[in-house]
């Protein structure tokens, strides 16, 4: 896997990516490449700028400086829906499901970037719009099946337990058929068995050809599934390497645990 990963061109690349909030530099001159076909984890202490980095990549926030390349396109400064349509989907640290919709409807909305029917054809229920709605429903169901939520398809999304809402967000993001999937703390709040299931899903997503970039605090999960790990600290890139290299790096240990006495 590692040999393939190094040979592949980067799917996502940032150069000098910086975001300043007032006097706070949340993300500072980050150069980062994510290679296609890998699971790449970003770790770092709280406040290291991980979620801000995700917000820059997905277009929620414009960068203060620097550039972002995704595939062949420059995406810094583009709007979220435009970036989504280029094939970048994400989930959220704080769940952002559409609580008053059904589970299935949530996933159908996730496919919106793949739909082409306009308002008028939808209003008039033109055959093309109907066929598209039908197809979206079928695809959405298959993604619910993939994460194991198909039996809950018609339930209100807000009624799902927390762990299943995380899976719903995953299905919704996958329904966009992204080439790059950003997962913001997908294991937060999951129980042991649910974490094992997530690790299994992540491996299956990678083998289906989707590149995964995830922010995660759960080191067990990161070390078991990630091909590559980047460590952020105070908005700066501290280290990048394989999971084994990260665990062995003294700077990383200091960033997480603090400097030893007398050092």
């Amino acid at each position: 896997m590692a040999a393939v990963a190094v040979a592949a061109p980067p799917l996502l690349e940032t150069r000098g990516l910086t975001r300043v909030f007032g006097g706070l530099v949340a993300v500072s001159a980050v150069d980062q490449a994510v290679r296609a076909g890998t699971i790449h984890a970003i770790i770092g202490p709280n406040g290291a700028g991980k979620t801000t980095l995700f917000n820059l990549l997905s277009g929620v926030l414009p960068p203060t400086r620097g550039e972002i390349r995704f595939g062949d396109a420059r995406i810094d400064g583009r709007l979220p829906h435009q970036i989504c349509r280029l094939g970048l989907a994400r989930t959220f640290q704080n769940l952002q499901i559409f609580a008053n919709m059904t589970v299935l409807e949530n996933v159908i909305v996730g496919r919106h970037g793949r739909s082409s029917a306009g308002f008028l054809s939808a209003m008039l229920r033109l055959p093309a719009a109907r066929a598209e709605a039908q197809a979206a429903c079928t695809v959405a169901l298959s993604w619910l099946d993939f994460v194991g939520l198909a039996p809950r398809a018609d339930d209100p999304a807000g009624s799902l337990p927390y762990g299943q809402q995380r899976l719903l967000e995953l299905a919704r993001a996958l329904a966009a058929e992204p080439t790059l999937l950003l997962l913001d703390e997908p294991a937060a709040g999951l129980l042991g068995r649910e974490k094992d299931n997530l690790a299994d899903l992540l491996a299956r997503i990678r083998s289906s050809g989707v590149t995964v970039l995830l922010v995660e605090h759960d080191m067990g999960l990161v070390m078991s599934v990630a091909d590559r790990v980047t460590v952020l600290n105070y908005g700066k890139k501290l280290f990048e390497g394989s999971p084994d290299e990260v665990q062995a790096d003294p700077d990383v240990v200091v960033a997480y645990l603090g400097a030893p006495e007398g050092a």
């Binding site: 929620v60 829906h81 952002q96 499901i97 559409f98 919709m101 970037g113």
Partner: peptide
């Protein structure tokens, strides 16, 4: 559905390509 999604959660809806 897209309009309902925007009404419920504009932030997330934009990230669904809406």
């Amino acid at each position: 559905k897209a309009m309902r999604a925007v009404a419920m959660n504009r932030y997330a809806a934009r990230l669904m390509g809406i």
